[in-house]
């Protein structure tokens, strides 16, 4: 077990194993998103209340799922880095942050677009949109903190601490924002308290969520690989790999 973890922590070994794993995740991501997207956008029945505009859910919900999962994954990687000093975990955390911020933005943007047909406005201080916005600021904070340090080691450790502080706060923020929202603006139209989705609407959504997760894993593997090459550029195996003489 420990030998396996040590091996996994070695950038060289990870570089080799991820090369074999990555294509599978890309295939899964492209296939699932294509099938789920076409099914959800073209073949799933229109919602009886919202008509076709509900189809934004097939982008909005997977992006929102991913936005929260990536923050947790980033904090977990930060924890691994802080406790066991595994540099690979920090490389993964570093490349996850911009992707997570991007997903949060996608969720916010698709939420705003969805707001036009349902609420008649681009922005409403809805509990979910508000906590998503705060999550976006948390991502920006982690990215900005990492960029502010001159030394990479300090930057990594500072970003790890902030990610862990953030992940403890996310549920607190989420619930307090929900509480605040119910107090100030009783929900006139709730997207979620609809009757349970019929199967033919729900299945494409599941495919899209799985597809987005595969996409996240594939992109993280790919970007971690380039981060390995960048950070380990002075190591012999990297120089041999990129074809530079010793």
């Amino acid at each position: 077990m420990w030998a396996f973890i040590h091996k996994l922590g070695s950038p060289k070994w990870f570089y080799a194993i991820s090369e074999r794993l990555m294509p599978w995740f890309w295939v899964a991501a492209v296939a699932l998103i294509l099938i789920g997207g076409v099914w959800g956008l073209a073949f799933a029945p229109a919602d009886y209340q919202q008509g076709n505009s509900f189809r934004i859910i097939y982008v909005h919900v997977p992006a929102a799922f991913l936005a929260q999962s990536i923050f947790v994954a980033m904090a977990a990687a930060g924890f691994v880095f802080m406790v066991w000093k595994i540099k690979l975990a920090d490389m993964a955390a570093a490349v996850m942050a911009p992707l997570g911020a991007g997903m949060t933005f996608v969720a916010l943007f698709s939420g705003a677009v969805w707001g036009v047909p349902t609420w008649g406005t681009w922005w409403q201080w809805d509990a979910r949109l508000t906590s998503m916005l705060i999550l976006f600021f948390l991502y920006v904070g982690v990215i900005a903190l990492r960029g502010a340090f001159a030394s990479r080691d300090s930057a990594s450790r500072a970003a790890s601490v902030l990610a862990m502080v953030g992940v403890i706060n996310i549920p607190i923020i989420k619930y307090s924002v929900e509480w605040w929202y119910t107090l100030h603006q009783p929900a006139t139209f709730s997207v979620t308290s609809r009757p349970a989705m019929p199967m033919e609407m729900w299945l494409p959504l599941l495919l899209m969520v799985l597809g987005f997760y595969s996409f996240f894993i594939a992109v993280t593997l790919m970007r971690t690989r380039s981060e390995i090459l960048r950070r380990e550029s002075s190591k012999r195996w990297v120089r041999e790999l990129v074809g530079e003489g010793p």
Binding site: I134, G141, A144, A148, V161, V165, I173, S176, V177
Partner: peptide, 27 residues
Amino acid sequence: ALTVGLSRGGVLLSLLVLPLYIPVLIF
């Protein structure tokens, strides 16, 4: 504590801290 070593940490400090202040503000 995270920004004390940075020469111009002021704006960054607010960026890091303000989102975490929201629950306290709400209640």
